[in-house]
Every structure is written in C-alpha cells, then in structure tokens.
Amino acid sequence: QAPETKIVDKSRVACDGGEGALGHPRVWLQIPEDTGWVECPYCDCKYVLKGSKADAL
C-alpha cells in the first residue's frame, strides 16, 4: 500500500507510525523551507507543509 500523505500546519512534526504499539519509535521531523515536505525514515509517511510550494502540487 502507498505511504500516507499528511498536510500539516507546522514545519516540525512528530511521527510514531500512528498505530500505537504497532507503530515505530517517535521521531521529530523538520520540514525544509526549500522543499516544503519531509518523509518519515521509518514508515515513509510524507508530511507536506500547508501553503508551501509542495502543497500546491
């Protein structure tokens, strides 16, 4: 199944896999201003900063 994409309001987000005990260790991710998105290294969930150029795609 394809990784999930989430639109977020802040450039710093936490990801834990979203499945409680079945998820992964919580990691904090920083969305770079130049790209407007970041992917979780564990679950490949893509976080897109709302209003960024990546959000316009």
Rank of each mutant, 00 (worst) to 15 (best):
G23V: 09
G17V: 03
L49W: 01
E33T: 08
G20V: 04
G23W: 14
I7T: 05
K6T: 12
C40M: 08
D44G: 15
V13W: 04
L29A: 02
G18W: 04
V38R: 00
V27L: 05
A14W: 14
V8G: 01
E33V: 09
K6P: 05
A54H: 09
R12G: 10
K50N: 08
V48K: 01
V48W: 03
Q30T: 13
A2Q: 13
H24Q: 04
R12N: 11
E39H: 13
V8N: 03
Y47F: 15
D34R: 06
R12L: 15
P3A: 12
K10M: 09
L57N: 12
Q30K: 07
G20K: 04
D55I: 01
Y42N: 06
V27E: 02
C40T: 07
A2S: 13
T5M: 13
K53P: 12
A14L: 10
Q1G: 12
A56S: 13
T35V: 13
V48R: 00
T35D: 08
K46S: 03
I7L: 12
A21Q: 11
E39W: 14
T5D: 08
L29C: 02
W28C: 05
Y47E: 08
P41A: 04
L49C: 08
C43L: 01
P3I: 12
K46D: 08
P32K: 04
T5V: 15
W28T: 01
D44H: 15
K50Y: 03
Q30W: 12
A54N: 06
W28K: 01
K6G: 07
L49Q: 04
E39D: 09
V27F: 07
E33L: 13
A2V: 12
C15M: 00
V38C: 01
C40L: 08
G36Y: 02
C45P: 01
Q30P: 02
V13M: 00
D55M: 00
V38G: 00
E4T: 14
R12S: 11
E39I: 15
C15T: 00
E4S: 15
K50A: 12
V27R: 00
P25W: 08
V38E: 02
I31M: 00
C43M: 04
V48E: 05
D16W: 05
L57E: 13
K10C: 12
V48G: 00
Y47L: 09
S11W: 07
Q1R: 14
V48H: 01
P3G: 13
E39F: 15
A21I: 11
K6N: 12
R12Y: 13
L22R: 11
C45V: 15
G23F: 08
C40E: 05
D55T: 01
K50R: 14
D55Q: 01
S11G: 06
I31P: 05
K53C: 08
E4N: 15
I7H: 07
R26A: 06
G36P: 01
G51C: 08
A21E: 12
C45R: 15
P25M: 09
E33P: 11
P25K: 11
H24K: 01
A56F: 13
L49D: 07
C43S: 02
E19G: 14
D16C: 12
G20A: 11
H24F: 03
K6A: 10
G18L: 09
W28Q: 02
R12H: 11
Y42E: 11
L22P: 08
Q1V: 13
D9P: 01
K6L: 13
Y42Q: 11
L29S: 00
L29N: 02
S11L: 12
A14V: 09
